[in-house]
């Protein structure tokens, strides 16, 4: 699908901008927010940049509101008022969609997926991840100015995937009529000296990508389904031979799902059959061979 019908990113609002930058801790949300704030300031606007980063270090959500205009009151952008949403991670891009201006808001997102451990909690046979389901194609379909790109891949190609944030910044830069030199100077203020060259390259790559998108020659990246290759569905059952069990507690302690316990007679019992995934850890570890896991295939692959 081409981006033919789309307007250039952000070309719709003259003057000030409301830009929401989102991602996951450690991705560089704050760095590109600071660059955007500085650009706003250079343009002679009042600037507010508001972030919540309390959980940033521990892989949590990070978001930063950048607002510049002749006069800015609220430190945060109201829902439906963002001229641009710049997302450094795919699921995060979806979380903030309702902040975008209907019709005119520009969506720029890296298709990179950072799957949190939380999304892999259901380990049952055949279970699927809780990671957000929507694909770039679906979002591009819904939002008139949506740009999804593999920014991390582009940055990695240049030598460091961590510069993906700067690729996205470069991509957004075509929306502001601002000389390249100003962007470079602003970047240099916030990236370490050793990382300047790669960040300049990343910025240029993003800009080039966006110009091509403007011309309608960029494809919407496809995303392979996550964890797709499932084996045949299996149903497992646990058989515990009470006569052989001596209550050593090993299976109880090491069951990954915590679904075993010792009963009053110190015999292992399956207390949470629904939680059992049939992983066989108990079967392997039982020193007395008292546990057997039976698996039967259900249905076809």
């Amino acid at each position: 699908m081409s981006a033919e019908a789309k307007r250039a990113p952000g070309a719709e609002t003259a003057g000030g901008r409301n830009i929401l930058v989102v991602g996951v801790g450690g991705q560089g949300v704050i760095m590109i927010s600071k660059v955007l704030a500085l650009i706003g300031q250079r343009r002679g606007f009042e600037v507010k940049q508001s972030e919540v980063h309390g959980m940033a270090k521990r892989g949590g959500i990070v978001f930063s509101h950048v607002r510049f205009a002749p006069k800015v009151w609220s430190p945060t952008i109201a829902k439906g008022e963002a001229d641009a949403l710049i997302a450094l991670e795919w699921a995060e891009s979806l979380r903030w969609l309702d902040f975008l201006k209907p019709e005119t808001g520009v969506f720029i997102a890296d298709t990179r997926r950072i799957v949190p451990p939380f999304a892999c909690l259901n380990r049952q046979q055949g279970a699927v991840t809780a990671y957000a389901k929507a694909t770039p194609a679906e979002v591009v379909e819904r939002i008139s100015n949506a740009y999804a790109l593999d920014a991390s891949g582009i940055a990695a190609g240049l030598g460091d995937a961590r510069a993906a944030n700067t690729v996205l910044l470069g991509c957004y830069s075509v929306a502001l009529d601002e000389p390249l030199e100003h962007w470079r100077e602003a970047l240099d203020l916030f990236v370490p000296k050793a990382a300047r060259a790669i960040n300049h390259a990343a910025f240029d790559a993003g800009r080039t990508w966006a110009e091509a998108a403007r011309a309608g020659t960029q494809e919407v990246p496809t995303m392979p389904a996550l964890f797709s290759a499932r084996g045949p569905a299996v149903k497992s059952e646990l058989e515990i031979n009470a006569a052989w069990c001596k209550g050593c507690d090993i299976c109880v302690k090491l069951c990954p799902e915590r679904c075993l316990a010792l009963d009053k007679k110190q015999i292992a019992v399956l207390t949470k059959p629904d939680a059992c995934t049939g992983c066989r850890v108990c079967e392997w570890l039982c020193p007395d061979f008292a546990i057997t896991v039976h698996q039967t295939a259900v249905g076809a692959a």
């Binding site: 892989g59 699921a91 969609l97 949190p116 957000a132 929507a134």
Partner: peptide, 9 residues
């Protein structure tokens, strides 16, 4: 669209 929880870890 459908959201995903991302608690800090």
């Amino acid at each position: 669209v459908e959201n995903m929880a991302r608690p800090p870890v």
